[in-house]
Design a protein around this nucleic acid. Sequence first.
RNA 1: GUGACUGUAGCUCAGCUGGUAGAGCACUGGACUGUGACUCCGGUGGUCGCGGGUUCGAAUCCCGUCAGUCACCCCA
Length: 428
Amino acid sequence: MAKLQAIRGMNDILPDQTPNWQYLEKCFQEVVHRYGYREIRFPVLEQTQLFKRSIGEVTDIVEKEMYSFDDRNGDNLSLRPEGTAGCVRAADQHGLLFNQQQRLWYQGPMFRHERPQKGRYRQFQQFGVEAFGMAGPDIDAEIIQLSASLWNDLQLSDYLTLEINNIGAAEDRKRYAAALTAFLFSHADELDDDARNRMHSNPMRVLDSKNPDVQVLLKNAPALLDYVSEDSTEHYSTLKALLEQVGISFIENPRLVRGLDYYNNCVFEWTTDSLGAQGTVCGGGRYDGLVEQLGGKPTVAAGFAMGVERLVLMLDSLGKIPPSTAQVIDVYMLVVGKELTAASQLLAKQLRERFPALRLVAHCGGGKYNNQLKRAYNSGAEVAIVLESEPGEVLETVKIRRLDDSAEFVSVELAKTADKLGEILSIS
RNA sequence: GUGACUGUAGCUCAGCUGGUAGAGCACUGGACUGUGACUCCGGUGGUCGCGGGUUCGAAUCCCGUCAGUCACCCCA
């Protein structure tokens, strides 16, 4: 029978890697707590309609990347491709957004059916932050500052660049899209196939075209900036001033157009060139219209999401994982002789009770002294406790041996093992 | 969805222009050693991703398929 394997693009994270993930999770949680954000958890599955209405019908995500299926009731469900939609649904459904402000964070797997490559997988992990009910640019600055705090804690600041842009209010973009479409229509014969397709479905994304000929043509296209309302412009310039005042440098990227329809006004991305093609590590912005669009009362909002796999890759390749993150044990207990099974388990239990923080592995499975000692060395433990007796003999003493080059050891009465161990390891 | 490269023991790989497989590490038995690592001797372990085809004969050529890697696209 053929062996079953993991679904394409869905990775197993093995014990060698999990400490790195735990380190990143710990840092992220410390930062969000520092800023007073509270965790929210919501399902991995939602009605497909939720994502269509929030992300947008004609986006790549909804058109070709969602894992959708009919469940046994005939409802069409989808694995969440991102977190914001579910977060808004959950928060609104439970009244968290009714005339109040909320600062929320979440973490969990997202799913998109794309071709896997470095930093891009079909199941991937995101950290996200969503702030509701705050209209000013101060909250935008806050979440950007929050992300910058994390880069600082992770020692990644030198490798990340903040890009920002103002994409205007929803009405602004509507008017602009109309003007842009008209322009593109009048030059349709000069566009490539890709641009011509997008011209109908999502004209703003023609601006992203990598085709140099198209880019030349676009120089004469209407500019979004000319359609952005005064309110938006003022909001945006206040944000820029705030960022400068708190010492966060940024570059303005007028071509930064996020792939999800719900964004408005200021959007941002943190990018790096140390990851290959998938350079975006964190992306977000305002989405003032989304709550209402999903049936809630009008509620302004802003948020971002970051890709955990990409951050782990960065930390790994840049050598930014602290050595203390590695999980090692303190004590390896050798058990030489079958008759000692009960004695070893009892002693191990007593030691764990006496030193709750002690990490102790008691050997199981028998085997020769040599093999067990080898395992003890390979485990990275600081000391080994050796239980050894001849058949029929009662165990009265144990040896405590340092697992370094000195190989020093002492014999100690069984009953005094804990005291001696505490002395040797300087713990109490 | 498109393209390029790759797919041989648990891991890293060798196997020239086709004649049905090897090394190192790891694991394991033993020798040495007052007890791991070092050194020496022995052993377990692969239907060469899977399925077809060409051939007297294929890991080695051809086709398909699955998977991995990277890029396009898009995004975290």
